[in-house]
Design a binder for these strands. Structure first.
Lengths: 348, 348
DNA sequence: GTGAAAGCGCTAACAC
DNA sequence: GTGTTAGCGCTTTCAC
């Protein structure tokens, strides 16, 4: 079978305790014995059994990460940031893909809380604030990315949805638009709510009346965006610009516009959020909001590990990172048509 | 502290062994006691300690996955397939991103072999066949995706590079092309080698002479493709079509063509491999080879778990999945110019 | 500075 | 069908 610590100890002529001390860089070992032990470890190719180590030390050096969709570039980038930082700190990362299923998310959480993972990162979880606080109250360490939670023991890293949404709408207004539609994500997602809030605040600041019929819900997917914009057009809503809650939905708008012969940005300006890689490659290039995804991943790991290893919450529990409005082609054009007419109605 | 199995046993008036039996669905328990125990488990919210369980049972229910780049849609999709299948079988997945660094890959392997993961999936590893066989010979179970390994105990799932490469070139030939360039990936990658092989075989079958100057190496990245095609153009190579070893490199070709005012597909036909999501969104839509990425992920997990749980290699150690040539716009056009002139030279 | 021994929480043989 | 008990392989007091 595998070689274990007693084997090393025997061959090196020391006790298992000493081998353990050498492995864990415990200072109370003579340079001499240390060298001796290291040599035997090398010779035998000894690798400490992780399961035994975990049981004894009560930690697994594993961080769990729960995301809605692994294969969505937004989450994939955050995961990359998390994984790279974790590796640098000698932690491993377990990935869980919920497929936007709340049951699965809860299942993953209980699956990892049993000492499988020392801590968990929830990326824009489907759970309510209360549910998240409840986990933290069981003195299990969790971190949240993409959302603010009001709990003294939950580190959060996110960008300011309200702020960048106002920036998006202000940009559109500066381009001359006043009839701006908003395509929301899941109705119950925090991001949807806050982006809508930013949209409304910007309208208000620019003294633009709010028209509820210019808001449609989607689900953050291309299909959702496609259907939402179609609904808008079908009910003959009057708008010259669209703020889509993310790039996926903006992609759906592109698709619908292609079918309906609506030209972007001449007849309709479009802005998304996330700066998905695709947004730079489609025609016209999509204006969007760039979030520091990798940095967000790194930051949350940093906070979590600090807390795991020093026992106390890191100085700044909450980190709000800047996002950047990337103005590209899809929102740069003279505002179409005279006020009152609806340039996006097909055939007009 | 956390509540443990003895606590449950005490409260239920049974022994720890019985609780364990109930938890592991061991049949030798009365329906009555089972119910009684379950109730207490429920009441106390008992969750078995994973570390202890792992140590005792010598398995962690964790599968390690090592990929070059998490945030590349090709790998992200494979990971999705792996994760979803693993979850369905009650396994968890640890993700390792090597960033195409062989040292890191080796480090991850030794990090996970210590009973941290019951098995590992290497997705197109940087290691040599010998190195992989060496791991398998230590009776540690590994699986490989995207590559064939000749070892009786290493399950492999991949698509036939040679076959689809021949299909790509044949398609180009059918479109009338005879001067076809090949942009390779890493010179030492198996995929590069095999795709080149398919390219050569197709040329031979169509009695097209092979011109070594039409081959350039890249590194599977957009930048690599960009630089490779630029080198081709600079040395005034004569070609009307390009087969790029993957979509990333094809994207680099698009970029270079935009700069050099070369129109795709009128002046240059382009085909890639991977069917990255972007390939459907760029203009013109990129012809490419679609690989069943999610299916590949599912398949390797299936084989691994079968072997883990039944001890013997699954019936079919090797699974070669079909890929599909997706003919889109980038390869559909009359062949440009008369034979002998080089239509891709800028300004010609 | 080093060794002996206890025990992390669970499962599986072996009794009964 | 259920209980008793002996470890899984490591770390960490506590002696010396």
């Amino acid at each position: 079978m595998d070689i274990k610590i007693v084997d090393v100890a025997a061959k090196a002529g020391v006790s298992p305790a000493t081998v353990s001390r050498v492995l864990n860089n415990n200072s109370n070992v003579t340079a001499n014995t240390k060298e001796k032990v290291m040599k035997v470890i090398e010779e035998l190719g000894y690798q400490p059994n992780a399961a035994a180590k975990n049981l004894r030390s009560q930690r697994s050096m594993i961080i769990g990460v729960i995301v809605p969709e692994i294969n969505n570039s937004y989450y994939a980038e955050i995961i990359k940031g998390i994984e790279n930082k974790a590796y640098a700190q000698k932690y491993k990362v377990i990935i869980c893909d919920t497929g936007n299923n709340k049951e699965k998310e809860l299942d993953f959480i209980s699956l990892l809380m049993n000492k499988t993972a020392d801590s968990m990162i929830l990326v824009t979880p489907l759970l309510s604030d209360e549910e998240l606080c409840h986990i933290a109250d069981m003195s299990y360490l969790i971190g949240v990315v993409g959302r603010h939670i009001d709990h003294h023991n939950i580190p959060c890293v996110y960008t300011d949805n309200v702020k960048f949404s106002k920036d998006v709408v202000s940009h559109l207004v500066q381009q001359g638009h006043r009839k701006i539609a908003f395509l929301s994500g899941y109705a119950d997602a925090v991001d949807s709510y806050e982006r809508l809030e930013g949209y409304l605040k910007a309208l208000r600041e620019h003294h633009i009346p709010f028209h509820p019929e210019l808001i449609e819900n989607g689900d953050f997917s291309e299909k959702g965006g496609y259907e939402a914009i179609k609904r808008l057009v079908e009910k003959q809503a009057d708008f010259t610009a669209v703020y889509a809650a993310n790039d996926e939905m903006a992609l759906g708008v592109y698709k619908a516009c292609a079918e309906l012969d609506i030209r972007i940005p001449d007849q309709l300006a479009v802005v998304g959020v996330d700066n998905n890689r695709i947004s730079r490659y489609i025609q016209p290039k999509l204006s969007t909001v760039s979030q520091p995804k990798i940095k967000m991943g790194r930051a949350i790991v940093e906070k979590l590990i600090e807390q795991l290893e020093h026992g106390e919450p890191s100085q700044e529990r909450v980190l709000v990172l800047d996002s950047e409005l990337m103005i590209r082609e899809s929102s740069l054009a003279p505002v179409p048509g005279p006020s009152g007419s609806s340039p996006v109605t097909p055939g007009s």
